[in-house]
Write a protein that binds this DNA or RNA. Structure first.
Length: 306
DNA sequence: GTCCAGGTCGCGC
DNA sequence: GCGCGACATGGA
C-alpha cells in the first residue's frame, strides 16, 4: 500500500541543497536517487512496522515536501504523524536560519550566496543513528564510513518485508540482542566496535536515555559534557553531534578543517590552530555554518566526499 | 608492503 | 592540563 504525505516547508527552503550539504544522504538506509534530488529510506516505526519512504520536494521557494510511504497496511493517524515528525526532523523544517542569513547579507561578498533556504544539513531522524554514524567517521576515510554503516544496517536492521534486501537503521535493542563477540564478528568496525556496542547496550538496558542530548533548555556546554561522557566521543565527535542537534557554535577540528584552513588562510604562514579557529569567532552561534559553507565553496561543492 | 584516515583513550608527567 | 603510543580495518 502507498500513502502520500505532504508537509509544507512553511519557510524558504532549499531541499536539494539540504541533500547535498554533506555525505549523510549517502549513508544507509538513506539512498539518494541518481541526480541527488530526492532520497529514499527504510524506516522502522515505534510500533515495529517497517516502511519505505521516498522523500522529494515540489517547486518554489517554500516548497511542499512529499513523502511516498510504502507499507503493508493502511497507515494510522499516529503512524502518519510519526513519519511526518521524523522527516521534518531530518530536514530541519523546525530550524530557523534567518539570523545566519542576516549576518551573511551584512558581510556581503561571497557570503551573499547563502540566501534564504540553503545551508540546512541533513540529519538522521533519531539521535542514536547520528551518534553511531559520527562514531563511524572517526579516524577513517569516507569510503570506510559508508562500508561500516552499510554493514550495520545489513546485519542488524529490520527488513522491509516486500524487499528484505532493504533495511532500516538498527535500534539499540537490535544490536544489543547479540553478544559483543557476535557483534564484532558480524560487523567490522575496528576499534569503534566496542564504542557502538556499549552505547547500544546502555540504551537498551535503560542506563542511558538518548533524550538527554535533545533537551532544548540545557546549555550547549552541558550537552557537550553529556556527549563527551559517551565512550568513543571526543571533541571532534561532540562538535559534530552538536551541529546535528542544531547547535552551530562549535567547530569539529579534524583533518578536513585543518586541510581547508591551511589551503585558504595559511598558505604563507605556519598553521596555528588557535588562529584558525578564531577566524570564525565573530560568527557567534553560527560558527559551524560559516566554516562549513565556506569550506564547501572552496572545494566547489564536491558532494559525495563530505 | 606501507601509510594513514572527518580521532579517542588511557596512561605518565 | 599536555604529550604520546596504541588502536582495527581497509583503501590509497
Amino acid at each position: 500500500m502507498q500513502t502520500e504525505i505532504v508537509i509544507p516547508a512553511g519557510k524558504p527552503y532549499d531541499f536539494i541543497s539540504t541533500l547535498r550539504s554533506h555525505g549523510w544522504v549517502s549513508l544507509l538506509p538513506n539512498t539518494p536517487d541518481e541526480n541527488l534530488s530526492a532520497f529514499s529510506r527504510v524506516e522502522r516505526l515505534s510500533s515495529g512496522l517497517v516502511a519505505s519512504l521516498e522523500v522529494s520536494a515540489g517547486p518554489g521557494k517554500e516548497p511542499r515536501i512529499f513523502i511516498n510511504a510504502r507499507i503493508r497496511k493502511r497507515l494510522s493517524k499516529n503512524e502518519i504523524s510519526e513519519i511526518t515528525k521524523r522527516v521534518s526532523y531530518m530536514l530541519r523544517l523546525d530550524e530557523n536560519l534567518q539570523p545566519f542569513y542576516a549576518i551573511c547579507k551584512k558581510r556581503g561578498g561571497p557570503w551573499i550566496r547563502f540566501s534564504a533556504g540553503s545551508g540546512y544539513l541533513l540529519r538522521s531522524p533519531a539521535v542514536f543513528e547520528d551518534l553511531v554514524k559520527v562514531i563511524c567517521t572517526i579516524n577513517i576515510q569516507w569510503g570506510g564510513t559508508k562500508r561500516m554503516v552499510r554493514e550495520l544496517v545489513e546485519a542488524f536492521g529490520s527488513p522491509f518485508p516486500p524487499d528484505a534486501s532493504l533495511r532500516a537503521f538498527p535500534t539499540p535493542k537490535e544490536i544489543a540482542a547479540v553478544s559483543e563477540k557476535e557483534f564484532n564478528r558480524r560487523v567490522k568496525l575496528g576499534y569503534r566496535s566496542g564504542y557502538v556496542y556499549e552505547l547500544s547496550s546502555r540504551i537498551a538496558r535503560g542506563e542511558l536515555d538518548i533524550g538527554v542530548f535533545m533537551e532544548q533548555a540545557a546549555s550547549t556546554e552541558e550537552i557537550k559534557k553529556r556527549l563527551l561522557a559517551v565512550k568513543g566521543v571526543g571533541k571532534y565527535a561532540a562538535a559534530s553531534m552538536l551541529m546535528l542537534l542544531g547547535r552551530y557554535d562549535q567547530i569539529p577540528v579534524d583533518t578536513v578543517f585543518r586541510a581547508f584552513m591551511k589551503a585558504k588562510y595559511f598558505q604563507n604562514e605556519d598553521y596555528d590552530e588557535g588562529k584558525a579557529l578564531s577566524k570564525y569567532d565573530e560568527w557567534g552561534k553560527w560558527k559551524y555554518l560559516a566554516y562549513w559553507n565556506e569550506m564547501l565553496t572552496h572545494y566547489s561543492q564536491k558532494v559525495e566526499k563530505l
